[in-house]
Nucleic acid binder design. Structure first.
Lengths: 219, 219
DNA sequence: AACTGTATCAACACCGTGTCGAGAGGGTCA
DNA sequence: TGACCCTCTCGACACGGTGTTGATACAGTT
């Protein structure tokens, strides 16, 4: 479920440059501090100084490890994204074989769960996307992944005659995936109106089934 | 289409306090400057000084007219919201009588058009929502309005036997309205993946119809 | 012992926000 | 006329955040 995020130890270009010495703990401390603080307040209310203090270093020293606050959060998001990529592939494979309703529910549940379990980070990603092009790009890739997979499933179901024709598969996929993003985001923040966290999946699954198969009880 | 936004001249609490003197032009100049700048860059890259300069005043003088940059944008959003509220009521009334597909399309089109025609302001609203509770609250009210109206329509269609039962009408309405918000936002920014601006309505209408009636061609 | 790279931080320059206090100019009323 | 008040204006300031610079300490080499 979370077996990625160790292929390239820390040479992802976001953190410090090469070499592998003690001060790795600092890097981790900064990352951990950031995740911790995000649990209690939005990214915009967290300063570089907060992160430095939390990691037990001074503000200038923070800049030795990361070029900015955004870079820290991007690193954290990277990991979440890597973890969800696993879920996605696995889940949609399961869908492809028989049982549309159960398969789809499982697929959406895995994704929902992945983000819900790191809710603070998910919300930070949404916040950062507003002001940071790199975050926008990263999120784009995530969305593109789901859309492509979803469109492929829709086309497969149409090809085997299980789903009727209609709007282009990719267009449908875009709207459905974006719906999920927004509905889940709203449920996480608890804004109003929003769906109860334990109603989210029921509602989304029904809409997906109807949008793809034309009925909530496909064969 | 845009006949509201003149009921309470300027006593909306956001701008300057009471009285009606010459310096109204300044207030308008600030508002106009803000709208203009929002056409070319995001809210986060516009400073109070930019607004002041644009309106031909100094930064401290700006604060005579508005308590903050956010307040300016909130005033602008207020007006957009008032304008769309008109559209919404009118459009959904039309839907209630016969012709689901045509009615729904008209309703969604009016809303889509209202925001598309003020795209810069719509995007600024989304941005401000991330950091400003007042903006969040205002947007909540907008969403709540659509959700309530949509849920009412769904219930009416179910009552007259035109739509099958399924998920609670309000839950369905929430998901659909939030889908629209997200899909439209993506189309406005042109992020990827996103729907082509002239494909948005086709796709959304189909999903709404299938979600509500279980078919893309209701009676 | 001199050298090199890692790690640290005080002090600084810079920018954006919001406030304070000192006016300038117009209207009004004694 | 002049005293008064209200609207409107802005220079100068205090503050808080960001990112950089330069000095320094410390740990291995060699």
């Amino acid at each position: 479920m979370a077996t990625a995020a160790k292929a390239t130890p820390a040479a992802n270009g976001r953190g410090r440059r090469g070499v592998r010495t003690s001060g790795d703990d600092r890097e981790r401390a900064i990352l951990d501090t950031a995740e911790g603080l995000l649990e209690e307040r939005p990214l915009s209310e967290i300063s570089v100084d907060d992160l430095a203090k939390g990691a037990g270093i001074s503000r200038p020293t923070f800049y030795f490890y990361f070029p900015s606050k955004d870079a820290v959060v991007l690193t954290i998001i990277d990991r979440l994204v890597a973890a969800t990529a696993d879920s996605r592939e696995e889940a949609l494979k399961m869908l492809a074989a028989g049982e549309p309703r159960a398969g789809l529910r499982q697929a959406l549940e895995d994704l929902y769960g992945a983000f819900r379990s790191r809710r603070a980070v998910s919300l930070a990603a949404a916040e950062l996307r507003m002001t940071n092009p790199e975050a926008r790009e990263l999120w784009s890739q995530v969305m593109e992944g789901w859309v492509a997979d979803t469109a492929a499933v829709i086309e497969a179901e149409r090809a085997r005659g299980a789903a009727p024709d209609g709007q282009p598969a990719r267009d449908l996929a875009i709207a459905l995936v974006q719906m999920n993003e927004r509905v889940q985001y709203a449920a996480f923040t608890g804004e109003s109106p929003s769906l109860d966290e334990d109603r989210v999946l029921d509602v989304l699954v029904d809409i997906w089934l109807r949008a793809i198969y034309g009925t909530a009880e496909p064969s």
